[in-house]
């Protein structure tokens, strides 16, 4: 069985390594000190289980998981994080609050073995809950090729539904993110991002004008020149947010 540890503090990785000595069948294939390394290592090794810290440089543990197409089973390790713990309680296989002892660690390993198979579903729901934390609603982390990009929310022009993904349009082009429109409507600041249409969410600060379009509909023209469809319902919402 392959294990990967992702934590930015060397000693935090060392204690997990120590506790794992008891389990010769569990092999640590790599240790990573941030989410970027984590994504690479997980794609390369396809581990059976990862130990994942939440607060890490640049992208946090949840954002790292979002970037993976195939997610391994995860045992979270964290010192203290209100939002994370709420998410763990509901959906994680188990989570370890630092500092933890061998006994508690063994229990987590046992839980993982008992639950093997159901992990994938758990992780999706967990990420949904975790992304409601304020720090994560201010940005979107996407993967483009082998590169990872952090897009601050205010740099987003608009979002467009694209099958199972959402297309995030920005100055530097558009990026796909494996989330739903409902997810973004719920997490982004509603004073700045308005669901103008079933398939569109627009950043109101980017809108220069709103023109009538076909029968009952409108179209929003952005500073960038982009055009975003506005439904009747969306038109009412836009006007309310803009105060016009």
């Amino acid at each position: 069985m392959k294990i990967i540890i992702v934590d930015d503090e060397p000693l935090a990785r060392s204690i997990i390594r120590e506790y794992l000595q008891k389990y010769p069948e569990l092999e640590i294939v790599q240790e990573c000190s941030d989410g970027f390394e984590g994504v690479k290592a997980i794609q390369q090794h396809q581990p059976d289980l990862i130990f994942l810290d939440i607060q890490m440089p640049k992208i946090n543990g949840f954002e790292m998981l979002e970037l993976l197409d195939e997610r391994p089973a995860v045992i979270f390790t964290t010192a203290f994080d209100e939002y994370a713990i709420r998410a763990f309680e509901a959906h994680a296989i188990d989570y370890l609050l630092k500092p933890f002892n061998q006994e508690r660690f063994d229990k987590a390993i046992q839980k993982w073995r008992d639950q093997a198979g159901g992990a994938q579903k758990n992780t999706n729901e967990l990420l949904e809950t975790a992304s409601q934390s304020p720090s994560q609603s201010q940005r979107v982390v996407v993967k483009t090729g082998s590169k990872i990009k952090i897009i601050p929310a205010q740099d987003i022009f608009f979002l467009e539904a694209a099958d199972d993904y959402v297309k995030v349009h920005t100055q530097e082009g558009s990026f796909l993110k494996n989330k739903t429109m409902n997810h973004f409507e719920k997490t982004l600041d509603p004073q700045q991002f308005v669901r103008s249409h079933r398939s569109y969410i627009v950043n109101v600060q980017q809108i220069t004008r709103i023109d009538p379009y076909e029968k009952d509909n409108h179209i929003a023209i952005l500073k960038s020149g982009g055009r975003v469809p506005v439904s009747r319902n969306g038109y009412a919402k836009l006007r309310a947010v803009l105060g016009l």
């Binding site: 503090e9 000693l11 935090a12 060392s14 204690i15 120590e18 010192a79 203290f80 609050l97 630092k98 500092p99 933890f100 002892n101």
Partner: peptide, 11 residues
Amino acid sequence: LFNSLNSINAL
């Protein structure tokens, strides 16, 4: 605090 304690635990 908790991370420091965790480091001590490892040390």
